[in-house]
Simulated scan of single mutants.
Amino acid sequence: MSGKPIVSVLSTKDAPLHEDAVKMLLEYFNVRFVTTKGWVVDEDVLRGVVGSDAILVRIGRVDKSVMDVCPNLKIISVHGVGTDRVDVEEATRRGILVTYTPGANAPAVAELTVGLMITILRNLHLIIDKMLEGRWDDARVFGTGSEVCGKVVGLVGIGNIGSRVARIVKAMGAEVIAYDPYVTEERARELGVKLVDLETLLKQADIISIHAPLTKETYHIINEDRLKMMKPTAVIVNTARGGLIDTEALYKALKEGWIAGAALDVTDPEPLPQEHPLYKLPNVVITPHVGGSTYESMRRVSLMAAEEVVRRFKGLPPLNPVNPQVLKQ
């Protein structure tokens, strides 16, 4: 084996790192491909990463146990924006840089978000089911739905993805309001969005779409009390993180008619167990966390994540650090 640093790439069999990013890494590193079982850290993962100088997380988790077997770890590069899969606090304590790839998958996630809005508003999931059974007349029963045009769309978060969704739905004729404590009034005006508090958003919006990171503060930001604030005709879309919504409270809200529908690309837990009652509700659309999964997006995100690893070992500053304070240690 050469003296090149070791980079471990964590991914599942069906979600590899893009080949162009692999080529970039192979030019500078010994690359290990460690197959994970989703977000689980098990003995196979620990054996695979042991002694790594860098870890690129396509799909997987990096916690204290992973860091313990990699005493020379210098960077954890997250493929995507979900840094909740890394124990950032522990990495920072050890002086390990964590990076992520904001914006790279924003076009893909924003487009799916709007697609899910249209799907739940127009009952496309029910129509398609009936058409696949060859039941034309039964499909037409669900043919009268609602438009985005003229609706109030409430965005919880208007960062890279939320701001793109805002521009798309405004072009479709919607009014957009948003809750985001980190966005200035000036930025909101640039987007043509009115900033409101969360309670106002929940009460006024016809379509609520969530684009916030999952943190201790945002966990279950949509809970039973807040679901009860929503209009009975409103729908909610989540393409961010499953833990932002209390799943059991959402089921209750949909089952009992507090709200009209939900479209989810993410769930809590994820994947949702096959026997979960949400699957049986007609006013729910669920996709398997594919918001960022386009060919274009996967290449952009993979190259950004790989570039961060290369920059770390070339002594160049990171482009998107999560914990920049480690650079001063």
Rank of each mutant, 00 (worst) to 15 (best):
D225W: 06
D225T: 07
R226P: 09
L227I: 04
L227F: 01
K228D: 11
M229R: 10
M230Y: 06
M230A: 12
M230W: 03
K231D: 04
K231V: 09
P232K: 11
P232C: 13
T233K: 07
A234Q: 11
A234T: 13
V235L: 00
V235Q: 05
I236H: 06
V237C: 11
V237K: 01
A240L: 00
A240S: 15
A240M: 00
R241I: 02
G243C: 00
L244G: 11
D246A: 15
D246W: 03
E248K: 01
E248A: 00
A249S: 13
L250F: 11
L250A: 11
Y251Q: 02
Y251R: 11
Y251V: 04
K252A: 15
K252R: 14
K252N: 15
L254N: 10
L254C: 15
K255A: 10
E256P: 09
E256Q: 09
E256F: 06
E256G: 13
G257L: 00
G257H: 01
G257D: 03
G257E: 03
G257A: 05
W258C: 13
W258I: 06
A262L: 02
A262K: 04
A262R: 08
A263G: 15
L264A: 08
L264I: 10
L264Y: 03
D265R: 00
D265P: 03
D265T: 02
V266G: 08
V266H: 08
V266C: 07
T267P: 05
D268Q: 15
P269K: 07
P269M: 01
P269Y: 06
E270D: 14
P271F: 12
L272R: 08
L272S: 04
L272Y: 03
P273L: 07
P273A: 06
P273V: 05
P273G: 12
Q274S: 14
H276E: 09
H276D: 08
H276N: 05
H276I: 05
P277G: 10
P277A: 14
L278F: 02
Y279T: 00
K280R: 12
L281W: 00
L281G: 04
L281V: 02
L281K: 01
P282T: 06
V285Y: 02
V285I: 14
I286K: 01
I286R: 04
T287V: 14
T287A: 09
P288S: 12
P288L: 09
H289V: 10
V290R: 12
G291E: 02
G291Y: 12
G291P: 03
G291Q: 01
S293W: 07
S293V: 04
S293C: 08
Y295C: 13
S297W: 01
S297M: 03
M298W: 10
R299P: 14
R299S: 15
R299T: 14
R300H: 08
R300T: 06
V301N: 04
V301C: 10
L303G: 09
L303T: 02
M304L: 02
M304R: 00
M304T: 00
A305V: 05
A305R: 05
A305N: 14
A306P: 13
A306Q: 09
E307F: 10
E307W: 08
E307T: 11
E307S: 15
E308D: 15
V310M: 13
